[in-house]
Simulated scan of single mutants.
Amino acid sequence: MAPRGPGGPTSLVPCAAALLLALGVERALALPEICIQCPGSVQNLSEVALFCKTSKLTLHARCCLDQKGTILGLDLQNCSLKDPGPKFFQAHTAIIIDLQANPLKDDLVNTFHGFTQLQTLILPQNVSCPGGISAWNTITSYSDNQTCQGQRNLCNSTGDPEMCPENGSCAPDGPGLLQCLCADGFHGYKCTRQGLFSLIVFFGILGSTTLSISILLWETQRRKAKAS
Results as ranks from 00 to 15, higher is better:
Lys105Pro: 01
Gly73Tyr: 04
Thr209Met: 13
Thr70Asn: 09
Val42Cys: 01
Thr93Glu: 15
Gly69Ile: 07
Tyr142Arg: 03
Ser212Arg: 10
Ala17Met: 15
Ile34Gln: 03
Gln125Thr: 09
Ala16Ile: 14
Gly7Val: 02
Arg222Val: 00
Pro84Leu: 13
Ala22Trp: 13
Leu31His: 03
Ile97Trp: 02
Cys155Ala: 13
Asn167Trp: 01
Ala91Trp: 04
Met163Ala: 11
Arg62Leu: 12
Lys56Gly: 00
Cys180Tyr: 13
Cys15Ile: 14
His187Tyr: 15
Leu59Ser: 05
Ser214Gln: 04
Pro86Leu: 07
Lys68Trp: 02
Met1Tyr: 14
Pro3Tyr: 07
Met163Tyr: 12
Ile122Asn: 02
Gly176Thr: 03
Cys191Lys: 07
Gly40Arg: 04
Ser80Pro: 00
Ser143Lys: 12
Ala49Thr: 04
Phe202Tyr: 15
Gly5Arg: 15
Leu74Trp: 06
Leu23Met: 15
Gln125Ile: 05
Ser46Leu: 05
Thr220Val: 07
Asp98Val: 04
Pro39Met: 04
Val201Pro: 00
Leu199Phe: 08
Leu57Ile: 02
Pro165Asp: 11
Leu154Phe: 06
Ala16Gln: 13
Cys64Ser: 07
Leu199Val: 03
Gly24Lys: 07
Ser80Ile: 01
Gly185His: 08
Ser46Ile: 02
Ala171Asn: 06
Gly195Leu: 11
Ile71Ala: 02
Gly131Asn: 04
Val109Gln: 15
Gln179Asp: 03
Thr58Asp: 01
Leu99Ala: 09
Asp106Leu: 07
Asp184Thr: 08
Leu81Gly: 06
Cys164Arg: 05
Ser198Asp: 14
Ile200Tyr: 08
Leu217Met: 12
Leu199Arg: 12
Cys35Thr: 03
Leu31Trp: 05
Pro86His: 06
Leu50Arg: 11
Asn78Met: 04
Leu31Asn: 02
Lys190His: 12
Ser80Glu: 14
Leu181Thr: 12
Leu12Cys: 14
Asp75Tyr: 04
Gly207Ile: 07
Thr58Leu: 01
Gly150Trp: 08
Gln43Phe: 09
Thr138Tyr: 12
Lys53Cys: 01
Cys155Thr: 11
Asp144Glu: 08
Asn44Leu: 09
Leu104Cys: 08
Met163Arg: 11
Arg62Cys: 07
Ala183Glu: 15
Gly5Ala: 14
Ala135Lys: 10
Leu178Ser: 10
Arg193Gly: 00
Ser208Asp: 01
Thr70Trp: 07
Ala101Phe: 12
Leu45Gly: 00
Met163Glu: 11
Leu21Arg: 02
Pro172Arg: 01
Asn110Trp: 04
Gln179Gly: 00
Leu81Trp: 10
Asp83Gly: 03
